[in-house]
Write a protein that binds this DNA or RNA. Sequence first.
DNA 1: TATGAATGAGATTTCATTCAT
DNA 2: TATGAATGAAATCTCATTCAT
Lengths: 205, 205, 205, 205
Amino acid sequence: MWKHEVKSSVKDEGLIEKRREQMIKGAVKLFKEKGFHRATTREIAKAAGFSIGTLYEYIGTKEDVLYLVCDNIYNEVNARLSLLTTDDGTLTSLKSAISTYYRLIDDMSDEFVVMYQESKSLPKNALQYVFEKEMKMVALFENILSACVKSGELRIAEKDITTVAHHVVVQGQMWAFRRWALRQHHTIDEYIRIQTDLILKGMES
Amino acid sequence: MWKHEVKSSVKDEGLIEKRREQMIKGAVKLFKEKGFHRATTREIAKAAGFSIGTLYEYIGTKEDVLYLVCDNIYNEVNARLSLLTTDDGTLTSLKSAISTYYRLIDDMSDEFVVMYQESKSLPKNALQYVFEKEMKMVALFENILSACVKSGELRIAEKDITTVAHHVVVQGQMWAFRRWALRQHHTIDEYIRIQTDLILKGMES
Amino acid sequence: MWKHEVKSSVKDEGLIEKRREQMIKGAVKLFKEKGFHRATTREIAKAAGFSIGTLYEYIGTKEDVLYLVCDNIYNEVNARLSLLTTDDGTLTSLKSAISTYYRLIDDMSDEFVVMYQESKSLPKNALQYVFEKEMKMVALFENILSACVKSGELRIAEKDITTVAHHVVVQGQMWAFRRWALRQHHTIDEYIRIQTDLILKGMES
Amino acid sequence: MWKHEVKSSVKDEGLIEKRREQMIKGAVKLFKEKGFHRATTREIAKAAGFSIGTLYEYIGTKEDVLYLVCDNIYNEVNARLSLLTTDDGTLTSLKSAISTYYRLIDDMSDEFVVMYQESKSLPKNALQYVFEKEMKMVALFENILSACVKSGELRIAEKDITTVAHHVVVQGQMWAFRRWALRQHHTIDEYIRIQTDLILKGMES
DNA sequence: TATGAATGAGATTTCATTCAT
DNA sequence: TATGAATGAAATCTCATTCAT
């Protein structure tokens, strides 16, 4: 998979890391508030805590900021899920994957909302990269579901597996996008239980 | 419910109707392609088939175009759903509502995608209006679900009903947003069946 | 003296006259309120009581409206002053000219203010014409003053006469421009008396 | 008295000062030539010697340029008059005030003409501010005249003092507005003498 | 490395004028 | 004659990006 490169004229890798973290944090807040297009680079710089000149020492274009936000999310997703997940065909593995994923979304709601709302503004290359990451997420759940089907724990028609995987991912997004409504009734734990039950009951063998 | 007014300096109501239809059609195509912010008013005018000057005879600001697109969707939703839906507590009424709603989304996928992706760019007033329309949609499914619970056809905890209603609406959006993936495996009819089954099996009493 | 021509595609002279009167009345009100540039032709048409299309049947360009306003003033000035004034070298003739002129300004304050504030927006030709009219006004007072000097009623150095004539004209404008302040203390009659006294006492022989 | 603030995104106060001076100089020339409305912001920028982008680093709206011109005049007026003037009731103090004021107008004729012709285009707030400055000028002469009346040097009816003060100010404007005519006959020194004499003779006790 | 002033392409919006009805 | 929809040139203002310090 091709990886979008963000240009920087600064050499010190540690510094780059640090500045980009500042940037992402500030940008997410800003993009959440006013969206990617309405947020100016000046504002992003200020929110990050440095000057417009400095901002451009660490990125090439404004869109890079958005890319960094998206990339950051997937790094987080990877870090958390890759360790944990197995596709051993047990319902436990499915439940654990859903739980981990939804909890991640709960932790990074703002980031997820920003990513899903603004990623279309990425340049083609970066968009493609983010898209592939997203598809990897879906594929991960496909694999787990597939394993559960093979092991006989779930009954899903072969051709429906992809759709169910999308379903799982999308219901996760829903927690981020409609938080204000859902949180009135449920904690993240309850939400995870409800969604898990729905899948399991709907597809039990 | 307050209704956002779009200013026009043209008097002939029929003409306004006609021109705005042209506008909406052109705008949806454009917004889909490049998003609201990247589409210029000149492009919108051209896509609609008239000059920039004429465009501004029928709207006050660029955001009005977006509003018209959103408003148009809900008019369509109303037209189709209001006739059809009953909350008599039968599963049939639920199925029929889901089917009608999802089919509408299928017909107007582009419009729905544009609305959900760009509506945050609406001015506060208009955003509020669109938001209320969306909540009305959720409430409609809440009512139907509630009736089914009361009649004993479904078993859903009182406090989960809102969440399930959101679920139904969001899965409809999913068909619009992830069409390219889902359509590889399913027709809209199948998709409706899958989602309906999932709800019914997941919540049968 | 060259006279600026305002083009009209309408033949009926009486109608032209009538429409232009409507126009001038509406325009003065509008120009007073927002100035020539901020007033749109649409607004002028509406203020005149007809449509934008009709407006352009009676003028060639927006600036023609301004010209008509200015021209109208001088027609009025002519009508009133030409009858009345004599330069027989009596103080009475001077007093009467001042009185007539200042009273005219009092009657047409809005028009005068508009003319003096906006005439610089006239096209060169028309501006020249208005300028010449203004100079004729000054010349008229020069003649009267000259006659009074010759007859021994006033003592003004030859080279100061023009300046005094300008003085008289400008103090007339002052009544129009600073009405809100001056009217708190004086009626037009008093104002005329004050200004006349000042001239006479300042220049008595 | 409230003071209109002109926004600038540049921090260096000295630079702001310098750039605004350039701006004012260029703008006065331009406004004199074609008036505020016909002068475009691009032209203003060019006349000031920088780009349109830079212009807007130092102002918020085009109207701010006009405001800066007006404000500049009154700063100058203050600087010159405040030092010099006394209202000790001597004719000398009156003469000196008139002389200083008229000489100032002579030096800044273009600026004064622009201000009086265009200030109506200022936004309400700024217009109010400029208006108050103008009234302060009138009040200044009122005070001096009053003192002369009290000391017995002049005889003016109480209620006429305001009008005479306006008179003095307006005759100053006249030197700016009708320079082309007046200068043919008089130097500024002569003009000052004529106007001073007129007042003194017209109102001597 | 960090700063922020300078730049100018490009976006939105207005409005004088035309012309078919 | 009267109307008003259509037009597009031109104006104001924004903002991503650069570069000298």
